[in-house]
Nucleic acid binder design. Structure first.
Lengths: 193, 193
DNA sequence: AATAAAACTTGTCATAGGGCAAGAAAACTA
DNA sequence: TAGTTTTCTTGCCCTATGACAAGTTTTATT
């Protein structure tokens, strides 16, 4: 196989030796999901994570009033993982749902552990990935306090245009912490400028 | 020294061998901060983290309008760290400030790396600590969307009563994403019940 | 104790965004 | 191509919270 495996975009030759790549890449298994399939359901303990080769995914939690709140969107190149459930080995509160058909590459916890403890660059990359997720969450969280809904939407359009273009308004609204009604009005206001 | 070092509460004999503890604990250095000292300032790259033996600390960011937003409170037993700056080696956006005099135990990045890559249980614990921080942030973030300010305040009182009792209203308000005026009204309403 | 500076409360009024319900438009389905 | 369902828009009215400004209380300073 000449180096054109999708995972070579994730595990780069600059960061890993050839030998390490040979230990890592074959451990991933390709899986596909159809639109509306669940990758993970509330109450289950996550035993895998995935890199998305193609498609769109969202994660959400259901609040005490029964509304669902989108916690994240994922698309090609992203890691889909519930860090909390995966590492703390707890039943999750999240639901992870394919919004379109998806092609993913899956790794299970045990294999992850084995690679994590044996390959230094694998654990450095893993840590960096987790910290990057922390960073996005923090940004989103501060923005929720500091910015008005319209500003949050504008930022999302700028930072993740493909999300805004491909995902239905109601999910984007709950991600921004507003109702679909409000988001519709915000859109109108923006386009009217 | 008979095992009554403060850090023995953090690194427990159940999780580490005696030899490992001897490699870890002496690497920490005791430092003290006076009220209003800064542990970290915006723009600097974090090169340390601390465990708090006593005192109260908060972290905050300044938003585009110049208001500050408290991102977290820390107290005895907690780790004080800017995960993002520490691991990504970036200048931080956060300010970390002692709200009272504090006694802390400090470790620097280089020593951390050395321990992280050489002691398996140290990295397991480090990862767990990071994921726990992620978990609190996520909870706070979802609550910001799902709950009203009053519910968020009630939850804080329940989960971290010592914070509510020891820290001034204005900081708690920005942590909850509201103004000090609103928090004052919420308090009144609650006590009037 | 006297003064100053913070911290907190309260009043009045303004506004972002929610709740609900009815349409309109678009996307499936048969 | 008609029928159904889902998605999105719009109108009307309401509520939680903000903005600002004036007290009051508490804490620190001399």
């Amino acid at each position: 196989m000449i180096e054109q495996h999708f995972l070579n975009n994730i595990f780069k030759v600059n960061d890993f030796s050839k030998k390490e790549l040979e230990m890592i890449i074959p451990k991933f298994k390709q899986v596909t999901f159809s639109q509306n399939d669940y990758l993970l359901n509330e109450g289950k303990t996550e035993n895998h994570y995935w890199f998305i080769e193609s498609g769109f995914v969202r994660s959400y939690v259901v609040d005490t009033k029964g509304n669902d709140i989108t916690t994240n969107f994922y698309t090609a190149g992203d890691i889909v993982i519930d860090w909390i459930s995966f590492f703390l080995r707890n039943p999750t509160r999240e639901n992870i749902q394919a919004l379109t058909d998806c092609v993913c590459w899956q790794l299970d916890f045990e294999t992850f552990q084995q690679l994590f403890h044996s390959i230094q660059s694998f654990r450095e990359q893993g840590r960096t990935t987790l910290v990057n997720s922390y960073f996005s969450l923090k940004k989103q969280s501060v923005s929720m306090i500091a910015d008005q809904a319209k500003e949050r939407y504008i930022r999302l359009v700028k930072e993740k245009p493909h999300i805004v273009q491909n995902i239905s308004l109601k999910y984007i609204a709950t991600y921004l912490g507003i109702t679909d009604t409000s988001l519709s009005r915000i859109r109108k206001e923006i386009s009217g400028k």
